[in-house]
Amino acid sequence: MGSKAKKRVVLPTRPAPPTVAQILEDVRGALAQDPVFTALAPEDLPGPSRRTEDSEDQQEQLYQQSRAYVITNKRLRQAREELRQKREHLQLAGQELERDISQVTQAALPGTSATSSG
């Protein structure tokens, strides 16, 4: 009951947001060491020319990775097709082998059962 009885504190109204001109003036007047500019900037990038080089390096790296992906993907598709053909060949060879075994068994034991032992 005590918490509901507290008076609400009236906050002052918010100031109007700065204009674009005021923001630009503030940014232009800021020092290079201002935490706003240094907190998010990578330390190993001294200037815009380095950023351009890094961007180009990154683009080249992505291009090379994409090429490697495409080449590897083609190889995998070829390998999959070769394996499919080999599997079919092995299945046919297995069926032929089973037929041959059956023929040999029938020829070797024409009158006796294959499961009987002497």
Rank of each mutant, 00 (worst) to 15 (best):
L24P: 01
V104Q: 14
A30Q: 13
T72C: 04
R87Y: 04
A32Y: 01
P35A: 04
T72M: 12
P42E: 03
I101Q: 10
D100F: 10
A30D: 04
F37T: 02
L109A: 11
Q64E: 12
E43W: 05
I23S: 07
T112P: 00
E53V: 14
G47P: 00
N73T: 12
V104P: 01
Q78A: 11
A93G: 03
A79M: 07
Y69W: 14
D54N: 06
I23P: 04
P48I: 05
A108L: 15
H89C: 05
I23V: 15
L45E: 15
G47E: 11
L92R: 15
Q91W: 01
E81Y: 08
E96M: 06
P35Y: 01
R28G: 12
G29K: 11
A32T: 09
T38H: 00
A93N: 11
A108K: 14
E60Y: 10
E25S: 13
E56P: 00
Y63T: 07
R84Y: 05
Q103I: 13
R28I: 03
V104N: 13
R75D: 08
L45R: 12
L92S: 13
Q64Y: 09
I23G: 06
L97S: 13
N73P: 01
P46Y: 02
Q65Y: 03
T105E: 15
V36C: 03
R80I: 04
G111A: 12
R51H: 01
D54K: 07
G111K: 10
T38D: 00
G29F: 01
E88P: 00
T38A: 04
E56F: 01
R87L: 14
E82Q: 15
Q85Y: 02
Q85H: 08
Q61P: 00
Q95N: 11
A32L: 09
L45I: 15
Q64W: 08
Q61N: 09
T52F: 07
A107N: 14
R50G: 03
